[in-house]
């Protein structure tokens, strides 16, 4: 996927232009400024909203903001309680953050594809990708963080030896040690990769379809982009939910001895 090659014109050029990040630096040390900018801003929105609710939280009659925040909290807490049976200060807030942040990432997808890049173009910014979750860096950042937590909790709960034993002796017993190790490693590594790629793939494809629809004549566009946007409301929520639930599931698996 060499979106850097943006010399092409016409439809291909348009698509490539939309999928190119605003970035600085070279090689690995390239920074996708748009991803960083939007994710920080959306994180700020999330924090601002919940902080407001948290500051005004009362046990009496809740206001609108608090009510909504509590709805989400109860929803996330219910999910955590269903799956995770240990005690953890981290896991529920983590799940809430994951859900809201991913949802806000995905929500950027519902803005018409040309609006924000055009505004940025007027201000002299050439490239802008507004949906952070169509950037592998954003999805992998979360899934690798979760992966680190999985490893951390596995070692913390089971002990280094216990964890090593689980890697080597399961599921087929000590006589199949190399095979077990291979299987386990694949299983563990598949977690962050599938987590990141699932979200990325869904949103990237969704965004691509929005871009393709935007290439059609104007009188056909609403006919297609309206149902797709409606469908996308489901997709973005579902993807955020899946990311959250899988995070909870992986972490609860890390907490459990087999």
């Amino acid at each position: 996927m060499s979106t850097e090659a943006h010399a092409a014109e016409g439809a291909t050029g348009y698509i490539i232009h939309h999928l190119t990040s605003l970035s600085v630096g070279e090689g690995f040390w390239r920074l996708n400024l748009d991803t960083l900018f939007f994710s920080v801003v959306l994180g700020g929105v999330f924090i601002w909203f919940f902080k407001r609710a948290a500051e005004k939280a009362t046990s009496g009659v809740p206001g609108l903001v608090q009510n909504f925040a509590e709805l989400l909290i109860e929803f996330v807490d219910g999910q955590v309680k269903d799956t995770f049976h240990g005690r953890s200060q981290l896991i529920a807030p983590l799940a809430l953050t994951v859900f809201c942040w991913v949802f806000l990432f995905n929500f950027m997808d519902l803005f018409p594809v040309d609006i924000l890049p055009s505004i940025a173009g007027m201000m002299g910014v050439e490239y802008l990708r507004v949906v952070p979750s169509t950037d592998l860096n954003a999805t992998f950042a979360m899934s690798i963080s979760v992966f680190c937590l999985i490893i951390f909790y596995s070692i913390k709960v089971k002990g280094p030896i216990g964890f090593a034993k689980e890697l080597m002796f399961q599921p087929f017993g000590p006589w199949m040690l190399p095979f077990n190790l291979l299987l386990k490693l694949v299983e563990e590594i598949a977690k962050p990769i599938s987590l990141a790629l699932r979200l990325f793939g869904n949103l990237y494809a969704g965004e691509l379809i929005f871009i393709l629809i935007a290439l059609l004549p104007w009188y056909i566009q609403p006919l297609l982009s309206f149902p797709w946007a409606i469908f996308h409301i489901l997709i973005i929520t579902l993807q955020a939910f899946i990311f959250m639930v899988l995070t909870i599931v992986y972490l609860s698996m890390a907490h459990e001895d087999h």
Binding site: L31, L36, A141, I144, S145
Partner: peptide, 12 residues
């Protein structure tokens, strides 16, 4: 994949 990953992880 580039250094954005690290920035995102810190933000997260």
């Amino acid at each position: 994949i580039n250094a954005t990953l690290i920035g995102q992880m810190i933000t997260f």
